[in-house]
Amino acid sequence: MGIVLDRLPGFLEPIPGGSVLITSIDAIINWSRSNSLWPLAFGTKCCAIEMLMATGAPHQDLARFGAEVARQTPRQADLMVIAGAIVKKMAMRMRLLYEQMAEPRYVMATGSCAISGGPFMYHSYSIVRGADEVVPVDVYVPGCPPRPEAFFYGLMTLQKMIRQGETIRKPGIRKKPVLAALPQGITIDDLHAQQQEMLEHDNMVDVEQAAAQKIWATRLDQWIPKPSKNS
């Protein structure tokens, strides 16, 4: 994130009307990001024909989503479309490619091989069962191979996630999906409790806080931004 955008919330929020400006800037930046995703064509297998090649073709046109600029180098891409099975030998390279992409970066796992190992789940000694063991995945598109229309549904879901999820207050952080493998010491009940807590918090409106954010102070030094629970 640039220096300007990092400091921008700090500059703008004290100003009357600043937070509205921030949310508008958020909306514009997220809208422009979601409509110009540049995929990294990481296609290893059959899904590459459908997800990367056939969607770029004239019949199902990826250009109408602004995403037909499929790059081969991760330095210029921001969406990694994992199309194909990941094998242990390739997993290290995939992680390297993911780390070479610049933030904000998104990952879409298409096809059942990238979601869970697919038809090679049993009896195979070299496959990685799911790309989310190597990189954090945002959207999963099931199918073997998924139809190009399914890929577009996944792409539009990702666009919606970008538009709703990111803000310039917390750049790069967005609502992450629940991972398949739980880290050490955390159980599914912990996750349920956490989700419950978040739901309750989001559903209960602090009237005072809401009112305070709506009042425009008449003088600049009367405006003290209330710290919200999420930041």
Partner: peptide, 15 residues
């Protein structure tokens, strides 16, 4: 050597 008959690997998943 994977294709030998006695090859076991902790990563091979059996249904």
């Amino acid at each position: 050597y994977p294709l030998r008959k006695g090859y076991t690997d902790p990563d091979m998943l059996e249904p």
